[in-house]
Design a protein around this nucleic acid. Structure first.
Lengths: 133, 133
DNA sequence: GCATTACAACTAAAGTCTTAGTAGTTTGGG
DNA sequence: CCCAAACTACTAAGACTTTAGTTGTAATGC
């Protein structure tokens, strides 16, 4: 029942949902206990809280679950790249309305970038140059 | 009383707060009526709703108000550029943990960029190259 | 076969966000 | 000087989010 009416489907994940999704993306197929173990030590969540959030993510169509042994394992349905793309699009629309290049401007100002990263970005833009939309 | 404990100060604005801030940034110094008038026709908000949100923004230290005639006019305390920078930083931390360049990668994939914009970005990166963090 | 344990589903409570009504105050006109 | 209009502050209701407890069920060991 992955009910995801298109209008709802691309709403951003809530903070905790995203926090757990990062783990799902990183680990692949996870049980509730796996997620709990992968959380940083200072982040204390009850087993039932993790379970609840994973179930919500399944309702939203973001993960799917498979019955294994006595419990379930969860894996991503929404690809990390897709969520990243969606997030950038959302930020451009809400904060940088109409001027996506300002986003990059702020990025290089606000986040320390290594020379290697800068070089990589230049290459990336080089490829894109002159490509039709 | 712009109470803004540093820990709270850089929390993202809520959707409606951001929506109204975009207007404040665009228009400069605004009354409640100005904001209401500047909203797109399909966006129906009551006068009191706009007033409430502006007051919340003032409590958060994002705008300041000045008494003019019978009412107040509001203007930005938080610069648009600062909020943009903060937003990018937040996105990098929560979604693109550790790999800011992936953000640009998704940007050029997900958002149509004109060749002029691409060129502008390349220049921007050129300036940044080799600069210490 | 039965008790113990691990787990999922349901439920709930506290917190925040959004929206707008109500009541009260200030101002300006007659 | 008083009434009407505009405007603000207070308040509240509904929705959603976060967190976790409780309860029922399934499997596991003995």
């Amino acid at each position: 029942m992955s009910r995801s009416p298109p209008g709802e489907a691309d709403k951003p994940l809530t903070p905790v949902e995203l926090e757990l999704m990062q783990l799902v993306w990183r680990l692949g197929e996870v049980s509730v206990a796996d997620v709990l173990a992968a959380l940083p030590a200072e982040r204390k969540l009850a087993y039932t809280s993790v379970s609840t959030v994973l179930r919500i993510l399944e309702q939203k169509g973001v993960v799917r679950s498979r019955k294994v042994g006595r419990g379930h394992v969860y894996s991503a349905l929404l690809a990390r790249e897709d969520y990243e793309a969606r997030s950038v699009r959302h930020l451009v629309e809400t904060v940088f309305a109409g001027t996506p290049s300002a986003l990059v401007e702020r990025l290089v100002e606000a986040v320390p970038l290594s020379p290697e990263e800068v070089e990589q970005l230049r290459k990336l833009l080089g490829q894109k140059k002159g490509e039709p939309s």
